[in-house]
Amino acid sequence: MNHTKQKRLDFAIAGLQRRWGSHVIVPARQVQPEQRVISTGFPELDRVLGGGIPLSAITLISGQTTSGKLTLTYKILRRAQQSATTSRSPRVNSVAILDLSASGDPDYVARCGIDLDHLLLVRPRAGKQAIDILGDLVRSRQLGAILLDGLPDLRTDPAAARYFDHLLPQLCLFLKATGCALIILDELQPPWLQWLTGIRSNAIQHCAALQIELRREHWIESKGELRGYQAEAHILKSQRTRPGQVARIAIEFNATVRARDTW
């Protein structure tokens, strides 16, 4: 841009700012992008994800059993509760868990740091009911994050799975409007099982803004005792950062029931 054009532009901007206020035109380099993410609690994973998992969108976390899906998600829920707390207002966000498999353990949830007073646990009886409740919870605008635990359980009912696929675009719009984060936990299934159940829809993968696959890498041992395990988080899809990146997370647990500050 030559000098004359730049001068004209500066004059035009100054005129507009004089008339409508200085806030109407702001140089792009001065605009701070709004932090619309929830930290995962694992710095390396946060770095790979560009800050954390996105709010107002669906995050799909998949992986095999004991790959660390639930622990990672509980840590995210804890951060979601804390995200509303500021120095001036000690408000805690409420979060909800749709426990389709009815296997949620409050003791473990509490040890992951989640405030149980601000946690709503829902145990729907049927898949379709779960989806309706999920819609209601999102529309309520009172929750910071919702965890849908048990996508395989939902898939056992083909009608419910189809209903969910059908409602997903609508759900995405509601999430965008309400600022709530929806985390869906999925278990990796062999292709032959998908063929057997007849559900080969990729609607969730399509609608998810972030897709993480967790793979357990190795156990962490110390003095002959199992202390935890290390897992790899593969970013399969991300709208904020480059997909294909890998982050390593170490999930430590106490072999005894009485866990101390390990979480």
Binding site: P106, R125, I133, D136
Partner: peptide
């Protein structure tokens, strides 16, 4: 509110 529509499916855990 949701209990009125969906039944008693909502819980709060307490240690």
């Amino acid at each position: 509110k949701l209990s009125n529509r969906n039944g008693e499916l909502f819980f709060q855990a307490r240690l």
